[in-house]
Amino acid sequence: MVNTVNLVKIYQSGGVPVPAVRGVDLRVEAGEFVAIMGPSGSGKSTLVHMLGGLDARTSGEIWLDGRRADTLGESAWALLRRQKIGFVFQFFNLIANMTVADNVELPALLAGASPREARERREHLLGALGLTGRADAAPAQLAGGEQQRVALARALANKPSLLLADEPTGNLDSRNTRDVLKLLTDVHRDGQTIILVTHDARVASLADRVVSLLDGQIVDDGAVGTFRRRPKGTAGDVVELRG
């Protein structure tokens, strides 16, 4: 589904080259859910931006569905995103003069869905994220956590085969995080590929695989294990009884 070969990104800052991603080989199979973790400044956001064509690579290759993607121009990338990629930005990027409902329906309509399909999809997504009552609001009327969930709904509106997300729970309290976790689980079960950047271990623990970045390089890459201390445990097991 997604494959990168020696992917490199170097920013120029006042004439000084600043390497953000330094030779990443990442292979993600169709239907796989991969979480990318690492300290801030480790290149996580830059990596997913490149995978979505939102940031141009300096060198290396990006392959999507067996097609070379890093050599595509802006408009070809835009088409690719419309057809198969959903992107959740860290800072939402909602369209300010459109309602929440229109923000979410737009990508589905652009991808060729009928107005009815787009509406049904929007109602389902906003419902799953506890936002049904906010459909007619403008983005500016929403709290940060609400905007973030709208951004996720929008990214999923055209049922993308690849969901890319940058800290999709960064602004959420634990109750709203639970809704997002549930939706991501459903999306994963439906077979959509997910690559997301997160520092939230609850999100990462849903993934099939966790990739850790440090200084622009992969330092660990492995399946999320299961920890079974208590097959029928209860909350009482998370504390130790002190006598």
Binding site: A204, S205, V210, D220, G225, F227
Partner: peptide, 10 residues
Amino acid sequence: RRHYIALMRD
């Protein structure tokens, strides 16, 4: 880290 994430899944 892997251990903590497995704990979190649990």
